[in-house]
Structure formats: structure tokens, C-alpha cells
Amino acid sequence: MKKLKHHFFILFLCLLSYANAQEKKTYKIHTVAFYNLENLFDTINDPTKFDEASPMMELKTNRSAIYKKKVKNMARVIADIGSNVAHNSPAIIGVSEVENREVLEDVVNDSSLISKDYGIIHYQSPDARGIDVALLYQKKLFSPISTSSHELKIFDDLTNKRVYTRDQLLVSGNLDGELIHVIVNHWPSRSGGEARSRPKRVAAAKLCKHLVDSLQINDPYAKVFIMGDLNDDPTNASIKDALKAQKDRDKVEFKGIYNPFEGFFKSGLGTTAYRDAWSLFDQIMITKPLLDKDFSSYRFYKAGIFNENYLIQKTGQYKGYPYRSWGYGGFTDGFSDHFPVYVYLIKEINN
């Protein structure tokens, strides 16, 4: 009987030791995000672009002061994304609706971000409005290896004239020494109606899928992030049929793509609103290797929409919508007509 009690006591100590070991697990966490900066234009007329039609250039007075406030507002949001969990601003953030590299330099040199030492990856695209996508990254956390811009050639189905839109940005690099790939998108708008414009976004999705396929040919286990303002919801043909993104992580096949934002959309959440209806155009999707349960390297933890209270319109006709920067009266002192989106990556670290 004493031997039996002794064995139970030893077993108890082993279980207690195992439980304590489990409790002591600690993780490193990084935020990867995307944000549509809503017409972040400078105050200088560029004769090579149609920037005179931008909200900034349409201002008749206080243009310089409003530009500085717009920049400060954008920097504030970027600094806040993920900070309550990761205790840091995003390690990597894709952005859209920026006029040029100079406006991004002003954002990353704002007092709320300058200590983060963000690098900028940006290419001029042929977009008719003069807006581009870009990637910002904390230099101490992410080291780019290769960058490239990929042109989307699409044509109007009635006139057969080319529609000039945003290029897709592909960046490969090391996040804390681990190779990842990020594709930043801003797909064609729904101008002319969703149905008529749908083929343009399907074409954009096919280009994006081609980039993913190319990465997976070189490395079937490539960790790829697809992010952007897609001008489509997670259930639209561009994402479900062209990208073949899955809502359920358990159903993602080898070389497949997981879209954590489809669940949010089906729950009634969105990132932008129009005529009292929410859309979830801003998304981040990932390839299967980021879903593995082995946390010895960075894996997907969770996704979210950054819809903090200060980013929401409090009064008026658009109460409850994203608190946008521009309205019929000019600058509103707001932020963007889109909420940012983010994912957390975690890696187990030894104590």
C-alpha cells in the first residue's frame, strides 16, 4: 500500500512538473497589417498625374496645415494597430491610396512612428488617379531580400481601351530570420457597377494567384501573405473561385489559401460602409504553412479588424461608419473610409 501511495505521489509530481512547464510557455508576437490611407496626396501638383482632382488639391485654403494633420492621423492609426497585444506597432504593414514615396516618408517620420524606424518599399504604378500601394516595415524586425512590381493589364469591355490600375507589389524577406512573402493589392473598383466591373477584379485575383503559384514552385512551403483593398468581399468570385481561398482552416489543402476574414464577413462585420451596408473589402489571406501547429517558427494566431472607437463616425448621417478624412465639405479631421485589418503571428520562445 505504501509503495502504491509512493507511486501515486511520484506520478502527481510528474504531472505537476509538466503542468508548470506548460504554463511557462512564452511566445513572441508580431502584427502584420493592411490599411487603405484614403487619398493620401501631397499639396504639390504633379503634371504627370491626375492629382489635381484629389481631395487635397481641391482644397482652396489651409492645404499645408490639413496635409500635416492628415499625415499625423495616419501615423497615429499605424502606431496603434496591434499595440495592445504585441506592445508594438506592426512589424509589416501594407498600405494603399498613397500618391508617392514622399507622403510615406512624412508618415513614418511623424513623432508617433519615428522611433520605429520604418523602411518603405514603393513603386510608381500607372493608375489613372495616381495612387499606389506600398509596404512599410520595421528595419529591426524585417529585412527585404527582393521586391518587384507586377502590372495588371485589363481592358474596358465596351471600349476595349486599357484601364490603368494599381500594380501588385511582391516583397520577400526575413522576419526575425524567417523567410516570408507579402503581396500588396488594391484591385479595380466597382465603378460602373459590381457585375460590369467583376471581370477586372477576377483578372487581378488571377495575377495574384500566379504570383503565389510562382513562389510555391520554388518552395511548396512558402509562407505567403496576400493583403489589400480588394474591392470585393470574401465570398465574391475573385476570392472564392480565382484565389480559391477557404473559410475553414481545417479544409485548406496543401498549397491552399486561408481567409480568416470570411468568418467576420458572414458575422456581419466589415471594413467600409456604403448606403447602410457593410463590405469587407480589406483582407489578409495566408498560405497553409502559416497554419501549422508547430510554433517553433512564426505561425498564424488570430486576425482582426482594427475598428477602435476613435475611428468611428459619432454623429450625423454616417454615424457608425468609419470616420473618413474627406467629405463634401473638405477635410473632416477624420482618418479613412476603411478600417485597417491585421493578423498576429506568434512563435514559441525558450525561457
Rank of each mutant, 00 (worst) to 15 (best):
H181G: 14
L158M: 11
R129E: 12
L158N: 14
I145A: 09
V133F: 09
D157T: 15
D176Y: 01
A128M: 00
P144S: 11
E178S: 13
Y137W: 07
H150I: 09
Q138H: 04
E151D: 15
I131Y: 05
E178C: 10
S146P: 04
I131C: 07
A134I: 06
G130F: 05
G130I: 08
R162A: 13
D127E: 11
L152W: 12
D176F: 01
I131T: 13
R129L: 12
L175T: 06
R162N: 06
D132G: 12
R162K: 13
T165E: 08
S149Q: 02
G177T: 01
V171R: 00
N174L: 15
R166T: 09
T159Y: 09
G173W: 03
L179N: 07
L175Y: 01
L136Q: 05
L170Q: 13
K140C: 01
L170V: 15
D157N: 15
K153Q: 13
I180T: 00
K153L: 11
I180M: 10
R129M: 07
D167C: 02
L169R: 02
K140A: 14
D167M: 04
E178N: 07
S143T: 15
T165F: 12
S172M: 05
K161C: 02
S146R: 07
D132T: 09
E151A: 14
V163R: 04
H150D: 08
P144C: 12
F142P: 02
K161L: 11
L158H: 07
T159P: 08
S143R: 08
K139P: 09
L152S: 02
D157G: 12
R166F: 10
H150R: 01
H150M: 08
K139Q: 15
I145W: 02
L170W: 11
L179A: 03
N174V: 08
D127W: 06
N174D: 14
F142R: 00
V133E: 03
L169H: 10
L152M: 06
V171S: 03
R129S: 08
A134T: 05
L135S: 04
K161P: 00
